[in-house]
C-alpha cells in the first residue's frame, strides 16, 4: 500500500526535477523561436554545465559559487561554437530540416565522446549549495537544493521575461520569431540573433545542469535523457512558449515521479515517452492551448 507521505514526497521530488526539464525546454524554445531549428544537442549543455562546474571545483579548487558562475559562460561559449561551426554553415546553405537535426545529434555524440576522453567516464557529483537539511515537514523531506532549484528557476524565468520585453536584443529575438524576413528588412541582424539564441539556450542548460547535479550525479551520458525530457516538456507546453515549457516540465516531472511510485523506477522513461506520444497525437499545439482564446498562430 502506498501511503500519503510517499506520494507527497515523490511529488516534491517530481517538482524539483520537473523544473530542470522546464529550463531545458525553454532552451529548446529560445533557439526554435529564433530560427525554426530544433537543437537535438540541447541535453549536452546540461551535462556540460555539471561537468565543467565539477572540473572547476576539483581541478582548480575554486569555491562552488565561483565555479557555478564561471561554468555558465563557458558552456554558453560552447553553444556559440556549435552555432558557428555546425548550424550556421548549414543554415546558410539552406540545408534540409532533417539534415540539421542529424548534425546536432552528431554534435551531441561528438561532445559526449570528447568528454569521456578528457574528463573520464565516471559519474560524479558535488555537494548541495547550502549544507544541512533536508527540511522535514511531517515526514516529507525537502532538500535545501530544491529551494535553490525553485529560486534559480524563478530567477531565470524573470530574467528571461525582462530580457525579452525590455532589452533591444530580446525584442529583436522576438521579432525574428514572428517573421524572420520582416525582421531582416527592419535591419535586425538575424544571424547574430541565432548566435545569441544558442548562447542563451546553452547558458540555460548549464544552469539546469549545475542546479541538478547535487541532487543526483552527472556523467558524460546524462545529456540525452535531459534533452529528451526537456523536449517533451517543451511539447507539452506548446512548442515555443517559455512559460508553457516550464509548466510542462513540472507536469512531466510529477508524472514521472508518480510512475516511479506506482510502477517502479524502470518505468520512469516509459512514462515520459508515453506522455510524449499522447501529447503529440492528441494535443499537437500543447495541452495549454485549449485555455487560450486565440493564441498566436505559428
Amino acid at each position: 500500500m502506498i501511503d500519503l507521505t510517499q506520494i507527497l514526497q515523490s511529488l516534491v521530488n517530481g517538482v524539483g526535477v520537473g523544473l530542470i526539464y522546464g529550463l531545458v525546454g525553454i532552451g529548446f524554445c529560445v533557439i526554435y523561436n529564433a530560427s525554426g531549428i530544433v537543437n537535438f544537442a540541447q541535453g549536452v549543455f546540461v551535462m556540460l554545465g555539471g561537468m565543467v562546474c565539477h572540473t572547476l571545483l576539483t581541478r582548480l579548487g575554486v569555491p562552488l559559487v565561483v565555479a557555478a558562475i564561471l561554468s555558465v559562460p563557458v558552456v554558453a561559449g560552447i553553444g556559440m561554437i556549435i552555432e558557428i561551426c555546425v548550424v550556421r554553415p548549414m543554415w546558410n546553405r539552406g540545408a534540409a530540416l532533417f539534415a540539421i537535426i542529424l548534425a546536432t545529434i552528431a554534435t551531441q555524440i561528438m561532445i559526449e565522446r570528447i568528454t569521456i576522453l578528457t574528463l573520464g567516464d565516471q559519474p560524479r557529483t558535488f555537494g548541495e549549495f547550502t549544507a544541512g537539511g533536508p527540511l522535514k515537514i511531517a515526514n516529507i523531506a525537502i532538500s535545501y537544493q530544491l529551494f535553490w532549484i525553485l529560486g534559480c528557476g524563478a530567477l531565470m524565468v524573470l530574467l528571461l521575461f525582462l530580457f525579452f520585453t525590455k532589452t533591444k536584443a530580446g525584442r529583436a529575438l522576438r521579432a525574428c520569431s514572428q517573421n524572420r524576413e520582416a525582421a531582416a528588412l527592419l535591419g535586425i541582424p538575424v544571424h547574430h540573433m541565432l548566435l545569441l539564441s544558442f548562447a542563451l539556450s546553452a547558458g540555460l542548460g548549464a544552469v539546469a545542469g549545475i542546479l541538478v547535479t547535487p541532487t543526483q550525479y552527472t556523467a558524460f551520458n546524462v545529456g540525452t535523457p535531459f534533452g529528451v525530457n526537456g523536449f517533451i516538456a517543451a511539447i507539452i507546453g506548446g512548442f515555443g512558449s517559455a512559460g508553457g515549457a516550464l509548466a510542462g516540465g513540472v507536469l512531466l516531472g510529477v508524472a514521472q515521479a508518480a510512475a516511479i511510485v506506482v510502477f517502479g523506477a524502470g518505468f520512469k522513461n516509459v512514462a515520459a515517452l508515453s506522455m510524449l506520444l499522447v501529447v503529440l497525437l492528441m494535443f499537437p499545439q500543447g495541452i495549454f492551448s485549449a485555455f487560450k482564446s486565440g493564441g498566436k498562430g505559428h
Partner: peptide
C-alpha cells in the same frame, strides 16, 4: 573513432549533402 565519424558526418552534411 566516434568523434571522427561525427566530424565526418557533419562535414558531409555541410559541404556535400
Amino acid at each position: 573513432q566516434d568523434v571522427v565519424y561525427s566530424v565526418v558526418l557533419i562535414a558531409i552534411l555541410i559541404f556535400a549533402p
